[in-house]
Amino acid sequence: MLRLVARRLAGGAVLLLVISLLSYLLLSIPDNDVGRQLLGQGADQAAVDAKNAALGLDRPALVQYADWLSHAVRGDLGTSWFTSEDVTQTIANRLPVTVSLMLGVTLVTAVLSFLLGVWAGVRRGAVDRFVQVLGVAGYALPGFLVTLVLVLVFAVKLGWFPAIGYTPFDESPGGWLSTITLPVASLSVASIAGVSQQVRGAVIDVLRQDYVRTLRARGLSMPRIVLKHVLRNASAPALVLLGLQFVGLLGGAVLVEQIFGLPGIGSMTVTYTARGDIPVIMALVMLTVLGVVLINLVTDVLIGWLNPKARL
């Protein structure tokens, strides 16, 4: 298991390196005259050149990348070209918002999906039809449309939750809960739809396995078999999907943070990518890839724990 973790981390490091290089070179292709953009159309060429030189933009892209990399490995992601903010600090400030959103959604999804999925798979009937309809609906409707409807109903019409804004947890836990509830709920709909379908399918598959019949023949009760054997064997495919969804939430977070005005990574992505602010974009790309690598690692470790055959 340790060897698996070590190998995955090494692979992840290589991946980060390759993607950072590719991204940097690709981002350098458009001939954005950053100095001109910063100083305005009226500024004279010498000042613009000086500004570009100060940002290091007069050097070849590869040299710029090497410079960026040498700082990045030490945790210094540079400063934004346009706002002069320290990128590492900005991310550190915004990350908790997005992470609490994503963890909240994943928790809600995991609990509800397993409940619904197992129930639907074991009892079939009405719950089963509900899960299937939910699955289709959750897949069909674009996530932000669901968000808009939730805002319209619960914030605008009923006024139960604020439509916009964010209260940090350490300021007021109650305020945090009321500002995070609608975003979490709106992102959870699609996740639950997908994962509960997966759990349902896996449960039905496992229930058809020979060993379930043999366990019944040994005198074990169905609830016991479901809780211990079916759940464990049906979890692996659901976990893979949950892992994928977690990363996909980064995308969903972009829209939801924008709609609810949450100061997280998602809304940052929208703002900074428009201007070709390479230090910020690079930081966001690295963060995403790092997230992907870590999530895949966690999923693999969990699956190895659940399924001894997958262990190395």
Partner: peptide, 21 residues
């Protein structure tokens, strides 16, 4: 696997910086 793991929305936004809007 890698491309599938990346959140499409984030990649689309990032690629806007390269390819335009």
């Amino acid at each position: 696997d890698l491309v599938m793991a990346l959140p499409a929305m984030v990649v689309l936004l990032a690629s806007r910086a390269i390819l335009g809007s």
